[in-house]
Lab assay of single mutants.
Amino acid sequence: QVNIAPGSLDKALNQYAAHSGFTLSVDASLTRGKQSNGLHGDYDVESGLQQLLDGSGLQVKPLGNNSWTLEP
Rank of each mutant, 00 (worst) to 15 (best):
V2T: 06
S20H: 15
L70C: 08
S25A: 11
G33F: 07
H19C: 13
L58G: 02
N65G: 11
S29D: 12
V60I: 12
N66P: 00
L70P: 01
Q51N: 07
S36H: 05
G33E: 06
L52F: 01
S47N: 08
E46M: 14
G48F: 06
G38P: 02
V26E: 02
G41Y: 04
S47Y: 08
L49M: 07
Q51G: 06
D27S: 08
N3R: 11
W68I: 04
K34Q: 06
L30D: 04
Q35G: 07
S29A: 12
G57I: 04
L39W: 03
T31S: 03
H40M: 12
Q59L: 11
Q15P: 02
N66G: 10
L53R: 01
L9I: 02
D10C: 14
N37T: 08
Q51P: 01
G33L: 05
Q50H: 10
G21H: 08
V60W: 08
K34W: 08
V26A: 09
G38L: 03
N66M: 08
P62H: 14
H19L: 15
T31D: 04
Y16N: 01
P72E: 10
G57C: 12
D27Q: 07
G48Y: 05
L70N: 01
P6R: 09
N65H: 09
D10H: 12
G48E: 00
N37Q: 12
V60C: 14
P72I: 12
H40T: 11
D54A: 15
R32N: 11
S20A: 15
Q50A: 13
N65S: 09
D54S: 14
A17Y: 03
S67H: 14
I4E: 01
N37M: 12
Y16S: 00
E71Q: 09
L9V: 04
E71Y: 10
E46I: 14
P62D: 11
A17T: 05
V26H: 11
P62M: 12
L30N: 04
T69S: 11
N3V: 11
L49E: 01
D54W: 14
P72V: 12
L39E: 01
S29K: 12
V60K: 04
A5I: 06
A5S: 11
K11I: 12
Q51I: 15
T23W: 09
W68Q: 00
H19W: 14
G48L: 05
L39N: 00
N37G: 11
Y16E: 00
K34E: 06
G7I: 05
P62L: 11
G7V: 05
G38E: 03
L30W: 06
V2D: 02
H40Q: 13
N14P: 00
I4G: 03
F22Y: 02
D42V: 15
Q35R: 13
P6C: 10
L58H: 00
P72W: 09
